[in-house]
Computed example of a mutant assay.
Amino acid sequence: MSEITYAEGDATAPRGGGVKIIAHVCNDLGGWGKGFVLALSRRWPEPEAAFRRWHRERARNDFGLGAAQFVPVDPSVWVANMVGQRGIRTAGSTAVPVRYEAIDAALGLLAGKALELGASVHMPRIGCGLAGGEWSRVEPLVVERLVAQGIPVTVYDFDRKRP
């Protein structure tokens, strides 16, 4: 079994050939305005537009914790909007919005899509930014759901010192 590849760089510019899926975690409020999603929106408008529509029409679709939406942004690049956090952090609150079971469920859906497309998966340390999660709890989920099925995974750590 292969392992996760860790790389310094921008997850919105995935490395390597073939089909690639960029995965990230979203909240269940339909909010899109802080964190990694800003980098996605700077590169492509489609993931945000699709996410907002998915949330707006949630009474008629599968939107909710553990769901995943796959948005093509280029002939060989897709974005996976994965709902893995309940709400958002509020000022003064110590509660974290990450929901590991929801990330796990969404990773299962991501695995199915990656296998269908023959894609590699690229991501920041999902659920560990604004969602407040711990990579030590997310990494085993990524390994179990993706790496164990032979799906190549690259996790990017953004170098904030670069312009």
Rank of each mutant, 00 (worst) to 15 (best):
W135R: 06
P140M: 05
G129I: 06
S120F: 03
P140K: 09
L109A: 15
E134P: 03
G127Y: 04
G127Q: 04
S120M: 05
R125P: 03
E144A: 15
A114D: 10
D159N: 15
L130W: 01
D104W: 12
G108F: 03
K113I: 03
G150M: 14
S120E: 13
V138W: 05
L115S: 14
R125V: 04
G118K: 12
P152R: 13
D157Q: 13
G112H: 11
G129C: 02
V121P: 00
L117Y: 10
E139L: 01
I126D: 02
Q149G: 08
Q149N: 14
V155S: 03
S120Q: 14
V147M: 09
L115V: 12
V153L: 12
G118N: 13
V147T: 12
V142C: 09
R145S: 11
I126A: 08
S120V: 03
L115M: 15
V143C: 05
A114M: 08
G129N: 05
A131C: 01
I126P: 02
G127F: 04
A106H: 04
I103T: 05
G108D: 12
S120Y: 06
S120K: 11
A119M: 09
S136R: 15
A119T: 06
G118H: 13
L107E: 06
G118L: 10
E134Q: 14
R125Q: 14
G129E: 07
V142M: 12
D104V: 14
I151E: 12
L130P: 00
R137D: 12
A148P: 00
